[in-house]
Amino acid sequence: MSATLTLDIPDFRNSPRVDEVGIEERVSRFTKRSIKTEAKNTGLRLILSMIDLTTLEGKDTEGKVRQLCYKARHLHDSMEGIPKVAAVCVYPSLVRIAKKELEGSGINVAAVATAFPSGQAPKAVKLADTKFAVKEGADEVDMVISRGKFLEGDYKFVFNEIGAVKEACGEAHLKVILETGELSTLDNIRRASDIALYAGADFIKTSTGKISPAATMQVTLVMLEAIRDYYYATGKMVGMKPAGGIAKSKLALHYLVMLKETLGNAWMTSKWFRFGASSLANDVLMQLAKQEYGNYQSMDYFSLD
């Protein structure tokens, strides 16, 4: 499949406008879906399989990453049929150890790169950061866009930068973080999504988790609609990753509803949708245990790694 895809690059100043009230209203419809019994069970398992288990701290060490990787492979061994998470997400310097720990597990290693989280570094540094992560074995690269340039209106810079990072990724999948909490309006978020999509993102992602607000359903819906329009225009599927602020199963199920009703069933796998989260997994496990045993168990029954 190496046929060249020619794209008409749109004028991003003319990206579709978004009506905030309408978005709120649509989101409230998703949250009113009632997810029970079998649908809940299947949904919760699906959520686990879509998680990018994440640690992105200055104090991260090899020891910490090793523990997290074990958790990724063994979410809750006392219950049967619990899926593995999709990926473990770490800083580039810890990719090598994560890669080793996850060998043969089918779990990907994702690395945040390009001077994460601010992205305030020269292009050469960003590309070197990306190439280093890929060389260390990252299967996926989570880059940040230059929000400053975006807000200055220099869309061309942002577009070209994403393109260059994509090239530096080689075989690795590129997730483009918009850092929606810094873009302020839904119109901006839509425009940044379009830039990332047309510049070659494999995934678009809401947030670094370092800025508040992080992922919200409203923002994610705007991005899903951008993905849908891109798919309508090109036939090419792009993935979505809301990250930060999704800690509860119920909220994650609302996201699944939103995904299903916006992009349909083809996107309902970890190949096309991820949750960037660290504490979500345990809440989902607690719900699954409740479904299985009939009552809630203490949080102390679920491992913290």
């Binding site: 009632s34 029970k36 079998e38 649908a39 809940k40 699944l256 992009l263 069933n265």
Partner: peptide, 14 residues
């Protein structure tokens, strides 16, 4: 339309 809304995960009766 090429989007598929009818297969896969669906809501249980509520």
């Amino acid at each position: 339309s090429a989007l598929d809304f009818n297969s896969g995960w669906s809501y249980s009766p509520a």
